[in-house]
Amino acid sequence: MTDRIAIEKKVLSENDRLAGEIRVQLQARRIVALNLVSSPGSGKTSLLEKTIGALSGSVRMALIAGDVQTENDANRLKRAGGKLVRPIVTGGACHLDAKMITRALGELDIENIDLLFVENVGNLVCPASYDLGEDMKVVLISTTEGDDKPLKYPSMFRRSSAMVINKIDLMGFSDFDLMQVRRNALMINGNLNIFETSCRTGAGLDSWYDWLRRLIAAKRA
């Protein structure tokens, strides 16, 4: 008879502990923190470039851009006018974790910011498991992907609070069905806020900006 010792511990308890510390730190400064997730190439960096351009006059923003290799995304965000930008090069890891965010935040002056974006590594699987201390996850999908993606990656769509359907200017060049993707996503998560955008034409971006402004106002209230 072997002895069974009850442990009852979360595997990612150390990550969750650090994420909790980040959340307290951001909450104390009333910073809205969004964790942007998607497949590679859906347009996370483009959406952030546009958002920096549109909001930098009125919203103080910090951005953390994660990539497996290169600092290309962080450099794009700086060129777009981002003043507080930190790259995280994971060197192979398929997701960001709370320890990386703690380190990046230590290198950013976040005393007077309203909004923090974390651009996660392009991957719809692994980043779902790692809490980064964000207020919410925002998942992007583009019209050049399959409209069944929410069904294929349910965990990510379930854990996200908003879904941005990007590249709507390319509708018609693929079989992507806007109604179908909405239906699929809402079956997984009935409370998703859904935006339809094109970072190339600017279509739909105003409602995305309005939503961000409302989040910031709610945090300050």
Partner: peptide, 10 residues
């Protein structure tokens, strides 16, 4: 859930 429930000694 992603939890360690128990250990069994050898």
């Amino acid at each position: 859930e992603l939890e360690i429930a128990f250990l069994e000694a050898d």
